[in-house]
Amino acid sequence: MGFLITTLIFIVAGVIASLLARICCNKGPSANLFHLTLVITATVCCWMMWAIVYLAQMKPLIVPILSEGE
């Protein structure tokens, strides 16, 4: 799985989550916008964390060196 595909999965998950928030707790436009903001912030945070770790391992400058005695 490449970077773009997983990013797409994150986007899809974000969209599904915001749709669920919209359907499950529809409490007027201002509350919906609030829920949408929360979902987007959460998705962006999670994606960013994943992307950082993924990118850092993509072209490794150092490789795992097993410790002695293993």
Binding site: M1, T6, V53, Y54, V63, I65, L66, S67
Partner: peptide
Amino acid sequence: STTVGLIKVRGTYPFGV
């Protein structure tokens, strides 16, 4: 493996470290 280290043989681990 204890001196030079392992080598990357596949695509990057998909989720996390």
